[in-house]
Design a protein around this nucleic acid. Structure first.
Lengths: 248, 248
DNA sequence: TAGGTGAACTTGTTCAGACAAGACCAGGCC
DNA sequence: GGCCTGGTCTTGTCTGAACAAGTTCACCTA
């Protein structure tokens, strides 16, 4: 059973996407929407807060709500799962395990991923037949057996783990920066050594806060970009300084 | 007057940051918090939703809320303003206008930034004395005079514009990817041509949805990274495919 | 005409209560 | 011991109401 406010949000989103509420126009007031959907004002406001968080609608006290745009930010699942993102956007995609081995965790990993031997996997991801991303993932010991049971060309690891173990990747922290391609990067992605790559490092946990994996993903430049849409007040992004000692 | 739920959120955030609620522990229930703060359960829930959005607290129906971490995502203002971000994090920073000129808008800009001659500004930003970012900004015609009135070494353009015109940058869309340094990039940032840069393209609008500026910022690799912290359900980030025609 | 005033409107915040849905735990059963 | 079950606890959803705070616009005045 989907919540009432989610259905209302979905209807309003459809209306915006189909141009019934064009960009720049004002939305109906809380009171009008409450009457139209026979819902309490609080429920309508909850629905609208979803659209505000998605960046579709702008809102300030006293003034009517305004339609800001028609491209919406998408779900965390898509941020986390390459396959899910690619599938939703209609791309043909693939994946292949290049190397996989167990090893004892480094001190930093022991801290992040708890105890036991970790599983290190190197995967090459393709989009429309072209290699676009190199994924170096370290899985926590407790999930390693399930990962080892997957086929080498498993397209969606997230999906496969959900089906085999019911595991849901719930929370994540992501660091995004640019690096030069190393020789392994260059060989597998088919670019020159030193060419720019977009790097996303992430740590993912379950709903209970238990760490699942830590990963270093490198995208070929020009193949993929990250997009963030946000408004004052609602904003999960921060710039972080790296190592400031240049010219080493 | 700060809202009640914001004060409650601030108190809880402090408690988490100071270790009164350690990472991994459960928070008090809605009912307990409502009693402690003499507030309605709805108000307490609104406060908690702030912490959930910041990624500090995890929440699922039926189970007690869990403390996920202690580093919180920061504000949109900091995402938008280099100076604000740097100041908050205690860095010495500077900025200098390298070139500035008016010119007619390109067709694409005319669409995004409305009518009139636009103002193109090239700024070099420094952190701890080192050049770290090159900012190519195009301002809409209506704000251009205020920008031209700023000193060439103005450290915080956002702050200066707020003080002189009351303008608040409210909404933004950001695209993040990696590119190779061009010759101008390389010369001004002090890196070799072709070295990796982290690029952030953005379009900013006012609270009414009026476009203010469009910008292409390039960060020296290793100097700055973007960090995103998110949870399933609340997530403003999306990966976007760029041009997939490789090997031209 | 330019500018200020105020009423009407709209969104933001808070309250108290009710029910639904999922998680958790203890106790019973095989 | 291992597994199932049901009661209890906690969070999620929804309602209806009231007031606060900011915006907008028509109207009035200098």
């Amino acid at each position: 059973m989907v919540a009432r406010y989610e259905r209302i949000a979905a209807e309003l989103r459809d209306d915006i996407l189909r141009g019934i509420h064009p960009v720049g126009s004002t939305l109906p007031t809380d009171a009008e929407l409450a009457a139209r959907y026979s819902a309490a004002r609080g429920t309508v406001r909850q629905a609208l807060s979803v659209l505000v968080a998605e960046g579709l609608v702008g809102s300030r006290q006293g003034a009517r709500r305004i339609v800001l745009g028609t491209s919406r930010s998408q779900s965390f699942a898509e941020l986390h799962s390459f396959a899910q993102w690619a599938g939703v956007n209609g791309y043909r995609f693939g994946g292949e395990v290049v190397r996989q081995r167990r090893r004892p965790p480094s001190p930093a990993e022991a801290e992040r991923l708890t105890t036991g031997e970790v599983l290190e996997v190197l995967r090459l991801r393709t989009l429309e037949g072209e290699p676009v991303m190199l994924e170096r993932t370290v899985y926590a010991a407790w999930i390693a057996p399930a990962v080892e049971g997957l086929p080498a060309d498993c397209a969606s690891v997230t999906q496969a783990l959900y089906e085999s173990t019911g595991l849901v990747f719930a929370y994540g922290e992501h660091l995004i920066d640019a690096v030069a391609a190393g020789s392994q990067d260059a060989r597998l992605l088919g670019v020159r050594r030193g060419s720019p790559l977009l790097r996303q490092r992430r740590v993912t946990t379950t709903q209970e806060g238990r760490p699942v994996e830590s990963s270093d993903d490198r995208y070929r430049a020009g193949s993929v970009a990250f997009s963030i849409r946000n408004s004052i007040g609602a904003n999960p992004l921060v710039r972080q300084a790296g190592d400031l000692r240049f010219g080493v």
